[in-house]
Design a protein around this nucleic acid. Structure first.
Length: 434
RNA sequence: GUACCCGUAGCUCAGCCUGGUUAGAGCACCUGGUUGUGGCCCAGGGUGUCGCGGGUUCAAAUCCCGUCGGGUACCCCA
């Protein structure tokens, strides 16, 4: 009654990564992913960060307690599934920081040493309406330096990210930083902000009135032009933090200047997650659309202890890989693809098909990369295929070569040919001869 | 959840406003251009439920309604 069943479709807000150029979405091209991931890997290694791989889902309570009960993420964006017969439900991670800290604590890594620098890369899940640079399954990479209050680490994490961006050719980005104070001084600021807002509260947007009740700081984040303009004259937390926080913030700024990383202090930055203290920062790209945040990060000096770990400071960031891919495309530097294969094996006639397959196997076993035709196509068609793969050499076996127990190889660029034993051919293709 | 835009070949799109010959272009793909050899060139090949369903009409890719899917933006963030 309902006709043919519709073709299978990917869920809303997801994308496929393909081995070939397709359409115009950069996040769908494998080459960009490989370039970005290898840049991340090499920079993190150079800075002494070690990779960790927490699971894709955690107990829901982990996020409720660390990310924050009243954040948008926890309130309406989590993919949560019941855990059969057990108390807590499971949630596919909307961010990785809570899992990373959980991993350090649960595995008693702080018993081994008090200070850890780790990085991660992998998919996250948030139930939102997708748009440019925003997906329901998206990849984040991030670093966490856990176990120190040193402001130099705030600087270092930013330097790590700046270096990753430059390595993939994204040279244009704006760095903005702010300080959120610490538990000791934030309470006083909240009161001051409430006192400022209260008289004009009626003229603020509905969202802001809600924020006023639940998380005043977020009022400063409002994008409604009128509200934003009024907020200009609001007291800034950076001006009211305690001496310790002020000294920390100044040390961070001095550090950024010393490493030559341009930045601007933006008193309106208020990160959306509950756990941030002191330094918060964002890198934004002028090349992207509305979702222009390339990274969000900052210090979270109370989170580790609140999760049952030692009372230590920590700082880190999380970056959206799809947005970096977008920025890479806008920066006009195409990602280099994989290196071309070494050979394409051609059966010059039907009788040689078995032999050509064995020759290919031998070459692969010797460390060469290459392919052959599986459709009994003409030599011409096989050569077209060879050309299309970009192979450096074509390797022929036909009646002549069978008779001489040899192969003929042809250098695709230039076209010169030669007949020799397979072992010799392997040496030539490897560049070990001449 | 709301608003606006879009859905024709593998890809990018034209055709739609002003319904009417066999639904097109470029790229991609396939075959051939004589003996076992690519690219360039030449000759040929359409590979398509015009998203889906219904309506109007003698006639619908084209007009109307609905629906599904996608995109962008608001919100929020990576």
């Amino acid at each position: 009654m309902s006709g043919p069943s519709p073709n299978p479709r990917r869920p809303e807000g997801t994308y496929d990564v393909l081995p070939v150029p397709h359409g115009s979405q950069p996040e769908e091209r494998l080459a960009g992913w490989l370039a970005l991931e290898s840049a991340v890997r090499s920079v993190c290694a150079r800075y002494g960060y070690q990779e960790i791989r927490p699971p894709l889902f955690e107990h829901t309570s982990l996020f409720a307690k660390s990310t924050g009960e009243v954040t948008d993420i926890v309130e309406k964006e989590m993919f949560t599934v019941p855990s059969r017969g057990e108390g807590d439900s499971y949630t596919f991670r909307p961010e990785i920081t809570p899992g990373a800290i959980r991993l350090l604590i649960e595995n008693r890594l702080f018993q081994q040493k008090a200070f850890w620098k780790v990085w991660y890369w992998g998919p996250n899940f948030r139930y939102e309406r997708p748009q440019k640079g925003r997906y329901r399954q998206f990849v984040q990479m991030g670093v966490e330096a856990v176990g120190s209050h040193d402001p130099l680490l705030d600087v270092e994490t930013m330097a790590v990210y700046a270096e990753i961006l430059r390595l993939v050719g994204v040279m244009k980005f704006d760095v903005r930083i702010n300080t959120m104070g610490c538990p000791a001084c934030r309470g006083g600021y909240r009161e001051a902000l409430r006192a400022f807002l209260e008289p004009h509260l009626a003229s603020y947007c509905g969202n802001c009135r809600r924020r006023f009740e639940r998380n005043v700081l977020r009022v400063l984040d409002c994008k409604v032009p009128e509200d934003a303009r009024r907020n200009e004259s609001a007291p800034a937390i950076a001006d009211q933090v305690c001496a310790g926080c002020r000294a920390h913030f100044e040390a961070v700024q001095a550090g950024l200047r010393s490493v030559g990383l341009a930045f601007a202090v933006d008193k309106k930055i208020v990160r959306g997650l509950d756990y941030y203290t002191r330094t918060v920062y964002e890198f934004a790209s002028p090349l992207l659309g509305a979702q222009n945040a390339l990274v969000g990060g900052g210090r979270y000096d109370t989170l580790v202890a609140s999760m049952g770990g030692p009372d230590v400071g920590a700082v880190g960031f999380a970056a959206g890989a799809e947005r970096v891919l977008l920025a890479m495309r806008e920066s006009g530097r195409p990602a280099a693809g994989l290196p071309p294969p070494d050979f394409f094996a051609v059966a010059a006639d039907e009788a040689a098909r078995g032999e050509i397959f064995l020759a290919a196997q031998t070459m692969r076993a010797a460390g060469l990369s290459g392919d052959l035709d599986y459709e009994r196509r003409s030599v011409k068609a096989q050569m077209r295929a060879a050309n299309k793969t970009g192979a450096r050499y074509a390797v022929f076996i036909g009646a002549e070569e069978l008779a001489r127990r040899a192969v003929k190889i042809k250098r695709m660029e230039g076209g010169d040919e030669g007949v020799m034993s397979l072992d010799e051919a392997i040496r030539v293709i490897k560049g070990e001869t001449r």
